[in-house]
């Protein structure tokens, strides 16, 4: 994991569940097939209710990738099913970091163990401190995130033990490094 990361922000609310991240009907695509895999990128976050999120699509019509690489969300991000297709879909769409007040447990593990993306908890709700389209800089060592558009800086929680697995690049790489497998 690079220690300082800059990316464009997409804002989401509380309780974004795995069906909103990737609706169940897309789970039939093969994640190991380079063509089919793109469907996950194209359909990432396509389950969001249009009423709330309709004005700015996360992935533009016809595209396979999103222009947003940092998601900022409220509570309980990734709740719902255990499907690893959810962090995988976000990763395939181009997401690198998710900053939320807290995460559903299985989703958090999946992000880290699968080496898909980095979930970090913010000390306060940041969904009002950023707007979709703002640029954020995340400094993992200092546990802070800055809104470049407003220059304001906010504290994140230290990742604790999870950081070792994130730095290794996922559970398998970690286990190899520790000579467990």
């Amino acid at each position: 994991m690079g220690n300082i990361y800059k990316g464009r922000v997409f804002i989401l609310g509380d309780n974004i569940d795995t069906d909103q991240i990737i609706p169940a009907k897309f789970l039939v695509y093969d994640l190991e097939d380079s063509e089919e895999k793109k469907e996950y990128g194209r359909n990432a976050l396509s389950g969001l209710p249009e009423k709330e999120y309709g004005d700015k699509p996360f992935v533009e019509e016809g595209a396979y990738k999103s222009e947003y690489s940092v998601i900022i969300a409220g509570e309980n991000f990734g709740c719902g099913s255990s499907r690893e297709h959810a962090p995988a879909a976000l990763r395939i769409s181009g997401v690198k970091f998710i900053v939320a007040t807290n995460f559903a447990r299985i989703f958090y593990r999946n992000c880290i163990d699968g080496g898909f993306l980095v979930p970090v908890e913010s000390k306060q709700d940041l969904t009002k401190e950023f707007k979709t389209g703002d640029f954020a800089v995340i400094d993992v060592d200092r546990s802070v995130i800055q809104n470049i558009n407003t220059s304001e800086e906010f504290e994140l929680f230290d990742m604790g033990k999870s950081r070792e697995i994130v730095d290794a690049g996922g559970l398998f790489k970690y286990a190899r490094k520790m000579e467990m497998i």
């Binding site: 255990s82 593990r109 163990d113 286990a175």
Partner: peptide
Amino acid sequence: TGVGNSDAAF
């Protein structure tokens, strides 16, 4: 408890 695919593969 439930886990994702990477954990299950492990």
